[in-house]
């Protein structure tokens, strides 16, 4: 097992180098000069100021030098300073990632608890003579969830539960009158963004879990388990569920990765200061250090999540280790 993990870890290094080259090349290919764009917004066009600022951010150096400087500094944890915000990029990204991580984690938990559970329940009751309304609901509900766009339901929830009923906060990560470490307050603020972000994924995973489990419950080894007289719960939840988990784990891993970057629209609607929002604003404003650092960070997170999923795979399905 340890050799397997080591092998997977080593395979990440060339990928990271490739990503770093692509990120750097893309940042240079972006049209517009970041310093000039920034200063023009303040009606500043003095060439001396522009040159000094370019010098400060190393934008006058040859490209290979710029790449090497950026790479070496980044691996020491120094991603430079945001042109737009004047803050160290690492601090900015940490803050954004912390906020996005909380809502992404809550979303994945919602997907696992609701999506997987309902999918398994739907598979178990499939063709077992339950009332048709129930089985139809269990089969069709995820389709409905998948067909409603997350931002649409988010706007509706804000107006209904926030503005009209006043039950839940409409935006932000905390009540400004409460302390920063108020967990209950954070949980309240997480409810609407999490539902908005996870609804479609809940539907998708519900459907995936149901279909996979139904297929698996038709397998010969399940029939054998029934024939051996094993109790139903053991057949379903030990033999059936374990195999079902393989595609579900992949789905959850990819989902978590995509939520880290794909939550931009929800972050925008809920004024959630996450990394998605930060990356879009930085890209539009050509805040190159943030774009480069953020893209690298997201790439590293993706690779890390994939690694974790691969390792979990190996635990769930021993064949993977020996492949």
């Amino acid at each position: 097992m340890s050799r397997y993990i080591a092998r997977r870890l080593l395979s990440i290094i060339p990928l990271l180098i490739a990503v770093s080259i692509i990120v750097f090349a893309m940042s240079k290919a972006l049209p517009g000069d970041p310093v000039e764009i920034f200063l023009r917004q303040a009606d500043i066009s003095n060439p001396e100021i522009v040159a000094a600022m370019k010098d400060k951010y190393g934008l006058n150096d040859p490209l290979p030098n710029q790449y090497w400087t950026w790479l070496t500094l980044m691996f020491r944890g120094d991603m430079g300073e945001s042109i737009l915000r004047g803050e160290p990029v690492a601090e900015l990204l940490f803050r954004g990632m912390r906020n996005t991580f909380s809502v992404a984690t809550a979303s994945v938990v919602l997907v696992v608890v609701v999506g997987w559970t309902m999918g398994v329940v739907a598979a178990v009751v499939h063709n077992r003579g339950w009332h048709q309304a129930i089985t139809r609901f269990l089969a069709q509900a995820p389709v409905l969830m998948l067909s409603i766009p997350g931002f649409g339901i988010a706007v509706f929830m804000v107006l209904a539960f926030g503005v009209t009923l006043g039950w839940l906060p409409t935006s932000g990560v905390s009540n400004p009158r409460s302390g920063e470490d108020d967990i209950l307050d954070l949980a309240k603020h997480l409810i609407l963004p999490t539902i908005g972000l996870a609804l479609a994924s809940v539907g998708g995973n519900w459907r995936l879990a149901r279909n996979t489990m139904i297929e698996i419950l038709r397998e010969d080894y399940i029939r054998m388990a029934h024939a051996k007289g094993l109790p139903l719960w053991r057949v379903y939840f030990v033999h059936g569920l374990r195999t079902t988990l393989v595609p579900l784990l992949t789905s959850a891993g990819l989902l978590f990765g995509s939520l880290l970057t794909g939550s931009f629209i929800l972050e925008y609607i809920f004024a959630w200061p996450g990394i998605g929002l930060m990356m879009v604003e930085s890209t539009v404003s050509r805040d190159v250090p943030v774009v480069m650092g953020g893209t690298m960070l997201i790439a590293i997170m993706y690779l890390f999540i994939n690694l974790v999923v691969d390792i979990l795979y190996a635990f769930v399905d021993p064949r993977v280790r020996y492949a």
Partner: peptide
């Protein structure tokens, strides 16, 4: 207490919603 919202149209909507909901 200055509560900071994103710029742009969605941030502006969020500010109005927060006011209507009594959060600001």
């Amino acid at each position: 207490i200055f509560r900071l919202f994103p710029g742009g149209s969605a941030g502006a909507d969020a500010r109005v919603n927060a006011l209507l909901a009594g959060e600001v």
